[in-house]
């Protein structure tokens, strides 16, 4: 689901940039957010667990809560977010042109995007990887058995390229059947047009649970064929704002390690632990270097809870996806979530 078209963003960027005289590039994003009174957050057009709108128009998910945490830290109110749903073709242009302040939209951090699209990734909010979904009646239990299989895939994505890479590296010939829309690719797979379906593993879990006619007829294969670190991105040229997004994400992860839950934010202010005190703004002032007040991190946790709580709510046992923590567990619990120290 991670798109990388070059033309449309380029055309739009051309139009936008050529009309505007060179804007001031440093330190302006925070001022703009404050004077606007709203954080402009680029989200997906609907990926359950990451960012999707419910029937009342409330945005839910890991990516959405990251924006709420940012709004709470910067503006003091998690509801002061302007949600901008973006297709995978629109996302980078929207960030480059300044339409959104932060892109929190299940986007893979890769070299060409980081270095070639004029943006900075602030960290990793979810470690994903690409997998395969098959019908059990095909009796396939490993991706290595997919020789000559037709695989439904969404076009113009890193997913499509990973499939070609895997097929070449393993010497297993697979035939891609491409669709430019997510819904069309799913419908084709469930009608039996393809023997396998490939996309990010987190999405496969959702597709199997919610889209399959009968989830027990389908199997997610054990092979994970790519690394998809998903994280928030900001525009280049504003290091102050980059730091705020980076450290807010770190704060959510650090809070889990310190055991600072949404419910205990206030009561823990009297904790004797200096790390907890610092975090909650009763010890040394961590906000000053970021251009924020001393309670920024406490407000973020109070708004959405720590990383583990967010995960459980939207992706874990309490959600329809029922994903394991896996790579997204804390570093001291066998995962990769390792916050740089807040001190």
């Amino acid at each position: 689901m991670l798109n990388m078209r070059r033309f449309i963003p380029l055309l739009a960027a051309t139009a936008a940039l050529s009309l505007v005289s060179a804007p001031a590039l440093a330190g302006k994003t925070l001022d703009a957010i404050k004077s606007r009174g709203q954080l402009s957050c680029g989200v997906s057009t609907g990926v359950i667990g990451f960012s999707s709108a419910d029937s009342q128009g409330n945005w839910k998910g890991l990516d959405a809560d990251l924006c709420r945490a940012l709004a709470a830290a910067v503006l003091g109110n998690p509801d002061k977010v302007r949600w901008v749903p973006l297709s995978s073709q629109q996302r980078f242009t929207a960030l480059q042109s300044g339409e959104v302040d932060v892109l929190s939209r299940n986007t893979t951090w890769s070299l060409t995007r980081d270095a070639g699209q004029g943006l900075h990734f602030a960290g990793v909010a979810y470690y994903d990887g690409q997998g395969f979904l098959v019908a059990k009646k095909t009796r396939v239990t490993s991706a290595r058995q997919l020789k000559n299989a037709e695989v439904c895939v969404q076009s113009g994505t890193t997913t499509e390229k990973n499939l070609a890479d895997y097929s070449r590296a393993q010497g297993i010939k697979m035939k891609p059947v491409v669709f430019d829309k997510f819904e069309a690719s799913l419908k084709a797979f469930f009608s039996g047009r393809c023997q396998a379906y490939t996309t990010d593993a987190s999405a496969l879990a959702f597709i199997r649970a919610k889209e399959a006619p009968n989830p027990d007829d389908y199997l997610i294969l054990p092979e994970i064929i790519s690394k998809e670190p998903l994280g928030p991105a900001v525009r280049r040229g504003d290091d102050e704002w980059f730091a705020i997004v980076k450290w807010t994400l770190n704060a959510l992860i650090e809070a889990e390690e310190l055991g600072i839950t949404q419910a205990r934010v206030d009561s823990l202010k009297s904790s004797p632990d200096p790390a907890v005190q610092r975090f909650l703004g009763v010890g040394e002032d961590l906000g000053k270097s970021l251009g924020l007040d001393r309670e920024w991190a406490a407000r973020a946790i109070k708004a959405v809870g720590h990383y583990g709580e967010i995960f459980e709510r939207h992706l874990g046992a309490a959600s329809p996806l029922k994903l394991q923590r896996g790579l997204n567990a804390q570093w001291n619990k066998g995962g990769l979530m390792y916050a740089q120290p807040l001190r």
């Binding site: 070059r6 960027a13 940039l17 280049r236």
Partner: peptide, 9 residues
């Protein structure tokens, strides 16, 4: 401007 913003085209 594209070059200044680090956008490759």
């Amino acid at each position: 401007h594209l070059a200044q913003r680090g956008i490759r085209s």
